[in-house]
Amino acid sequence: MNFPSITVSNNVKANKHAEHLLVERLKHGNEDAFVSLIRQYRADLVNVAYGITSDREESQDIVQEVFIKVYRNIHSFNEKSGLRTWLYRITVNQSLNQLRKWKRRFNWQHRSLTEETSGETINPPELGSEKFSPSNLYEEKEFALRFEEQLKALPQKTRAVFVLRENQGLSYDEIARVLNIKRGTVSSRLYHARLKLIKALLKGES
């Protein structure tokens, strides 16, 4: 049973080497390398930003800024932390900063979803029931709205932990490194996020 672990270890080494080469090319100002960096990480970083901000345009802007920061600061990148970790860290910080910035202003981006459902009472479907199938549910704007509301009600830092775990599949140790927090904090934030989301979805209250 050693074979799979050897393969994994070889893959990890190959990935590390490829990452090192990419970073070297980036440090030399190679534009192709920069484009391939965007292609490799864009979707993941946009997902992370979206998980925190719940705003598609904002997430795109945030991740564009992340890549510009990377382009400018690649020389200061310490390869020990890992490129992916570094990118996640910048994205999370940028997203949290953006949210602070917007909080001081106001929500000028009007969502049609809100307008269409305003004034209606939305009864959330029951978890575990037939109706509660992720693929069906997300075709229902009402449920999407409720889910988004509950998600937005979570503290920003908790959302960051939740998206890194649930969407990006990072381990507790990786999340702790990205956010510079303790492993125990990762675990408790995840537990509370799940508890709140499930409770809210079950009872229809935040």
């Binding site: 534009e31 920069f34 484009v35 965007i38 292609r39 864009r42 979707a43 946009v46 997902n47 979206y50 998980g51 598609r56 997430s59 795109q60 991740v63 564009q64 890549f67 510009i68 978890l127 575990g128 509660f132 992720p134 693929s135 549910l137 997300y138 999407a144 889910f147 988004e148 998600l151 939740f162 998206v163 649930e166 969407n167 799940r194 989301l197 499930i198 979805l201």
Partner: peptide, 28 residues
């Protein structure tokens, strides 16, 4: 597990419509 799937769907549905080439052009 259902919550996890919901969250993944929620993110993917909302971010999948982003045009990668427009994004790239914008950054450059």
């Amino acid at each position: 597990q259902l919550l996890s799937s919901c969250f993944k769907n929620y993110i993917n549905l909302n971010t999948s419509r982003i045009n990668p080439s427009a994004f790239e052009t914008n950054v450059l």
